[in-house]
Each structure stands twice: as C-alpha cells, then as structure tokens.
Amino acid sequence: MNKDHIPIIYQDDDIIVAVKPNGLLSVPGRAPENKDCLISRIQQTRPEALTVHRLDCETSGVVVLACNKDSQRELSRQFHDRETQKRYIAVVDGLLADDEGEIDLPLIADWPNRPKQMVDFERGKPSQTRYNVISRSNDTTRLELTPITGRSHQLRVHMLSLGHAILGDRLYGCDRVIAQSPRMLLHALELGFTHPTTEQFCVYQYPAEF
C-alpha cells in the first residue's frame, strides 16, 4: 500500500472506515517531523474527523474514525468495553508447534526501554490473544491473531513471548527477524463494531498486502 494513499472503505455522517498504511502514525507525534499522520490526512477532506483508536505506526489495516463527539464517545465506549471484533494477520519467525492456542500473559510498560512493553506477572495488566495458524513455510508461520484485550504492543509482545517474533519488527525482533522483511508483517484485517446511530453491527475488512 502506498503510504500517501488512504483507502476509504466506508463513510457517512457519523463514521469513516479507513485503511492505515504501514509506516504512518495514527495521530501526530510530539516532534515536528511526526505531524503527518492518518487523522491529519483524513481531516484534509473531512475536517470533522475524530480519532477513536490507534494502530502502531508499523501496523497497517482497518481503522474507524468518528465524525462527531457523540459517535466518538459511543465508539470509544465499545473499544473500552471490548464490544468490538478485531482480527489481524501476521507472519512470524519460526514454525509454531500448535495450530491454535491462547496466550494469557500480563503486560506492562518497560519504562527504561520505552516505548517497549514487557510481560510482568506481578504488575502487568491482564492480556489475552488467540491465534490460529493459516500456513507454515520456509521456517515462518502465517497466522490469524484475535486480541481479547487491547494492550499497547500486545500482539507483538505475545508472539515474541512464544519465541516467534513478527517478521520485520524493528522494536522487538532480532537482526535476523528484522532482515526478513522491509516492513513489519502485521495487518489489522477486520474490524467490527455497532454503528453509533443505526445500532447495526458492521464488519469491515481489507486484505493484507503481504
């Protein structure tokens, strides 16, 4: 996906469902060189757009934005209360032994090494991820990830904790993992939520480009 192109899957008076390219921030960073981001680009044509949730800069995929405060409040509540439906596609280093499973490891910020997160059984917040293997080849595994909780870097740290870092992950991967892909192979494939006005449950998908 071209970093300069933002596909719009759906939009109306209340929501915008867009696809964030990898390498683009969801919201502006503090430094002047980090002002370019998904929300600022969307606001060029929809100035009323508001952020609801974020994807990591190196993660691509489906994002919903609100077009008014009421919609933002309701969508944010759904994310907080875990009423949304999320699925990711990832390619990881090595061959996972099991075809499916659930990772239940508490996470906390690794303060001396921010923005890294880490597993901490004493102070970490409960964090769960389900995984299903799609295919295995060339000492890599392609899998579907379903986050039950939504902690920062959750999918990246959980896969690392199994010994299978996501390919191209420059924050958590070793040199060999980083060298296998020019981008991190993690993509938000699917997002489902209840429309804040119609109250219909909507599911949007955009395929991974890897």
Rank of each mutant, 00 (worst) to 15 (best):
L171P: 04
Q154H: 10
R46Q: 14
T129I: 01
R170G: 15
R77E: 13
K35F: 00
L143T: 01
V177P: 00
R41H: 04
P47A: 12
T194S: 10
E144I: 06
T59E: 02
P7I: 04
S60A: 12
R136G: 05
F79N: 04
Q180G: 02
N113P: 08
V91Q: 04
R77Q: 12
N2F: 00
I42M: 06
Q117T: 01
S60C: 03
R123W: 09
D175G: 00
S40V: 11
T198L: 15
I108C: 09
I16P: 07
T141H: 07
T51I: 15
T84P: 03
G124E: 11
L191Y: 05
C174S: 13
T146I: 13
T51C: 14
I148H: 02
H158K: 11
P21W: 01
S127F: 01
T141F: 07
S40Y: 07
Q43E: 12
T146G: 02
P7N: 10
I39E: 03
D36T: 04
T197A: 14
S161W: 09
V19D: 14
N22F: 11
Q43N: 11
D14Q: 14
L155G: 09
S152W: 10
P207H: 03
I134R: 09
I9K: 08
A208P: 00
E74T: 15
G29A: 01
V119M: 10
D169W: 14
D169R: 07
G163K: 02
P112D: 02
R114C: 04
Y204L: 07
G168H: 03
D175I: 06
D14S: 13
V157D: 09
L95Q: 10
E199H: 15
L171C: 00
R114L: 15
T45G: 06
H53T: 04
L143H: 02
P182F: 05
F201T: 10
K69C: 02
D175S: 13
Q85W: 11
A179S: 15
P112H: 03
P147I: 01
G94L: 14
Q85R: 13
A208G: 11
D175H: 06
P126D: 12
T141Q: 05
I134P: 07
K20I: 00
A179W: 01
A49W: 05
V52M: 09
N34G: 00
P126M: 04
R114E: 08
E48T: 12
G101M: 03
L145I: 02
